[in-house]
Design a protein around this nucleic acid. Structure first.
Lengths: 153, 153
DNA sequence: GTAGTTAGTTCGTCCGAACGAAATATTTGT
DNA sequence: ACAAATATTTCGTTCGGACGAACTAACTAC
């Protein structure tokens, strides 16, 4: 009986999860399009956000681009105001790339509105339910991460 | 007390949700890369999957591409074996585009493996918890969908 | 200090993917 | 039946973004 109910929920999850993935991807690319960023540029910004300032070489490795391509991409990102080239403290050959906070602040404004929307949508869930959801998302993030690595590597 | 716990869970949700979005997007683009599809081609396949066989004109509207571009993209998708051009039953000017099942079947094999992984990851959740998760994902899908529309339109 | 290595840029090139305009085939309207 | 409208393709062009090779500047090792 409970087994049956669980099986039904699990099957439903497949459908619902698929739809959720879809709109997540669409949302993501809508944001990118709004900012006039292509996939490579986004990836670069994402890497910088997580790992902090990096050299062009580091970025080349993370993105898989040739050195010349990194130069071109950084030119574009800099022109759009998303990043800055700053001099490396010890090695004058290197170029440190860091995010431009002012540009990120503009983004933050948009995300705040979005976050409020999310919070409102969560009103119908109590503390315990939200904790369950968190646990689920963590487990899923792990699984998706593994699956991606399996595909990429 | 419970309010505090809920607030903590909600804040945690923001972090966890962001990470989950990130890996979802990465997973998605890893699949696309594996199949040798670009963003436009993917979008087209997605539309066809949801709305069934469509004419080139319909696809032009859904993708926002010029007619000439649709022709080129369909040539590519057809060459890769993802779609077929079939003649329209009543109007010989039109071209109906439909998905190639055999190609999708290959994909299905991969997704089955992935689904098993997901099911295993869900073992730690009982029926009630999965129902909560489903409800959450539905609510979120709605919210994300609205946010995307707000950005796009 | 000189040779060799490393980081990044510049330059010329190439390719995929988009476009508009013109061409073709077919349907619709009168 | 004939003109206008519609769906798609073809063709020539353009543009962004990637590349390799050559170049410059700076660090490292001996």
């Amino acid at each position: 009986m409970t087994d049956e109910r669980r099986a039904a929920a699990l099957e439903h999850l497949m459908t619902v999860g698929r739809q959720h993935s879809m709109v997540t991807v669409m949302f993501h690319s809508a944001i990118a399009a709004k900012q006039g960023l292509n996939a490579t540029e986004e990836k670069t910004l994402d890497v910088l956000q997580r790992r902090g300032p990096l050299t062009a070489k580091d970025l080349a490795e993370h993105t898989g681009l040739a050195p010349a391509s990194v130069t071109g991409m950084l030119d574009r990102l800099q022109a759009k105001g998303f990043v800055r080239r700053v001099k490396h403290p010890t090695d004058k050959r290197r170029v440190l790339v860091e995010l431009d906070e002012t540009r990120l602040a503009e983004l933050a404004v948009f995300f705040e509105e979005w976050a409020r929307d999310i919070v409102r949508a969560c009103e119908e869930f109590d503390a315990q339910e939200l904790e369950t959801v968190n646990r689920f998302l963590e487990v899923m993030t792990e699984a998706q991460s593994r699956a991606t690595a399996r595909l990429t590597g």
